[in-house]
Structures are given as C-alpha cells and as structure tokens.
C-alpha cells in the first residue's frame, strides 16, 4: 500500500511517501507564507522522486501547525501522536522522543505499545529555538549547519543564562562585543538550549531509549551536549526532520487498514 505523510510546520514542510514499510521518497522545503502552495510543491517533488502519481497514493496523513491548510483530503493527527509513531518505526525499542523544531520543542514519553504516557510542550518563554539559532548564526557570521561542529571546538565554558530567545540574543550580542571567541559562544548557546530541553524532558521524567528528532537534531553540537546532560541513551535517526511526516503516513495507513 502506498501512503503519504505531510508535516506542515511553521518553518518547513515535509512530505514522505511510504510503500508498505519502506520510505520511497521524502522532501523538505521552506513553508513560506502559503502553506497550501508549499505542501503542493513538496508533494509534487516527492511524487516525482518516487516515480508515482497522486492517484497511486491510497491515503494521506497530515500533521503540524498547518495541517488544516493542507490541500489534500487527509487523516489529521497531532504532532505528539505522529512523532511517537515515527519514532517507533525507526526504533521499536524506544520509549521517548524529543522533537526540536523551529518554533517549538516537545518531549513525549510512551510505552512499548506506543501508548502516550505523558508529554510536555515548551513553555511560552522557551519558544523560538530554531529561529534563535538562525539569528545567532547570522550574528556570529557562521553557516547554520556549521554551528554544531564549531561549538565542539570551544576552549572555555561560558553560560548563556536567559530562557527567552530575545534576551539570549542580547546576551550573545554583548559577548560578541566583549570579543569572546566564537566557538565558546556557540558552545554556550548550545548548552543553554540543551538545558531547556533537558528541563522539558525532566518534567515528564523521560529516560531510557530516547530518540531526538526535528531539524535541529542534525546539529551535532546540540546532540553532544544533550548526551552529556541527560541520563538517557539518545539516538538520532537517519532523517530526523521527517519523522513527524512519516508518523502521519503511518497514521494514514493504520486508518486505512
């Protein structure tokens, strides 16, 4: 059976095509202003990559903030449910997931059957993680994808104490002004984000086999820091940014069956 999963996030839109149990193709692109158009574009691309047409897809699942704006008839699921399904697909033995996206971050705890035991979304003042990282990359004049690597080359531990990304930004700007080395600032930024994430995970007493997903899971600096701070075995799946979309596809398949 061919199913598709769409994750219409505030910053990026992800689409996955699932053939039985195998990922045939996936696509990630910026959402921009028009969610409908972005989804359509991502869908067209992914269909082309998979060499199939929309008619071949038997069922579509959708998730993410823009799930209601998706221009296809779809089974809708919350991010919490889709993240869980996606994580269990990659790691059937996992019992928790941390999803770090552009605007939001969440921690989910589930049991072996995939029942959600508890979850927590970031509180108001801790939102905007991804955007904060992008802004910091700009301020420090480094490429976003290089940030993690550079942070691991730090020579001294410094602290960015603010929870709020607006204040953290001023804090970092003042460090730049004080000529603190880039690598050390980057390390401080990653530690600050990691400690927020750990706080979230601790709120639901998350431990054991935990999967980190979302675009920011590709950042080696953050994952390393999280590993230092958490009492869990953290695993990053191969395509961390499409796990939610994959979960949506799995949801669609389940409903169809």
């Amino acid at each position: 059976m061919l199913t598709a999963g769409i994750d219409a996030g505030s910053l990026s839109t992800k689409v996955v095509i699932l053939n039985q149990d195998k990922i045939m193709a996936y696509e990630v692109l910026a959402t921009g202003i028009d969610i409908g158009a972005a989804t359509k574009r991502a869908m067209d691309n992914v269909l082309e990559k998979a060499g199939i047409s929309l008619q071949d897809v038997e069922s579509i699942g959708s998730t993410g903030v823009g799930k209601k704006k998706v221009p296809y008839k779809s089974v809708q699921g919350t991010e919490v449910v889709c993240d869980t399904k996606g994580a269990l697909y990659f790691y059937p033995k996992s019992n928790g997931v941390i999803d770090i996206g552009g605007e939001n971050c969440r921690a989910i705890k589930f049991d072996a059957e995939g029942n959600i035991v508890d979850f927590a979304l970031n509180d108001k003042c801790a939102s905007g993680t991804g955007i904060f990282l992008d802004a910091m990359a700009k301020a420090l004049r480094v490429k976003p994808e290089e940030m993690g690597e550079l942070s691991l080359q730090s020579t001294e531990d410094i602290e960015v104490t603010s929870m709020c990304s607006v204040f953290a930004e001023s804090e970092v700007v003042s460090m730049i002004h004080r000529k603190v080395p880039k690598n050390n600032i980057l390390r401080g930024i990653h530690k600050s984000i990691a400690s927020r994430v750990v706080g979230l995970a601790n709120r639901i007493l998350l431990e054991g086999n935990v999967i980190i997903i979302g675009g920011i899971a590709k950042n080696i600096g953050l994952v390393t820091t999280l590993n230092e701070l958490m009492n869990s075995e953290l695993t990053v799946p191969e395509k961390p940014e499409v796990v939610g979309a994959l979960g949506a596809a799995l949801l669609a398949r389940e409903r169809k069956e």
């Binding site: 028009d34 823009g66 605007e103 939102s127 955007i131």
Partner: peptide
Amino acid sequence: TCVVFARTEVLGYLH
C-alpha cells in the same frame, strides 16, 4: 507583548 509570539501571530495572519 513578546516579539517571539508576535512572530507566530504574524505568520498566522499571513497563512
């Protein structure tokens, strides 16, 4: 009042 949230509100309108 929060800039981070104003962003979300603006995106909501644009969408």
